[in-house]
Amino acid sequence: MGAGVERIPVVAETDHLREIPPGKMAIWVFLASEILVFGGLITAFVLYQFAHGGFSADAAHVKWRFGAFNTLVLVTSSMTMIRALASARANDRARTQMFLLLTVLLGCAFLGVKTFEYSSEMREGFYPSSGMFWSFYFGMTGLHALHMMAGIAINLMLLIAVTRELPWEFLRRRIEYGGLYWHFVDVVWIFLFPLLYLT
């Protein structure tokens, strides 16, 4: 065996990247690109706000009380989601189910309030076509609501998986990833709320 071959170390160093579970890696990569979807919208909104010297006249018509209430609902739902994962880690099936169900219900509550909000705004004559602020308002909250629906669907699937008594190892991982997504959707709202309701 010649010297040339062994110029390169043959045995590999330890490789930490490989120890990350693929699912976790994937969900983070996915969320990174999701962040940019909302990032693009939010940047555009902020730039327009500068260009128009603020949207406060329009923003006065959104019901910040509903927004604040919904923020509370979502923050609570993030907490129940965390509790669900903790219960799964403790192999407590009943509590896992309960917290997942709570999260789903809170999500539905959010959407219910949102629907009510939309309809009352439309009754007052504010539609997506009522100008720049309303374009952004409906566009961003609408896209967020779609993400909420996806999150609710994911949590329902998790709930079914828990009920079907799939192995804990598997469930824990799934609940963790589902939770990451749920928190992401929550965080998006935390950004949208002050931008749209408190300007």
């Binding site: 690109s33 962040i35 940019l36 693009g40 896209l143």
Partner: peptide
């Protein structure tokens, strides 16, 4: 993945 997000937003808009 890191560049397509804003265009997805733009396509929706």
């Amino acid at each position: 993945l890191l560049s397509v997000g804003p265009l997805i937003a733009a396509a929706i808009m």
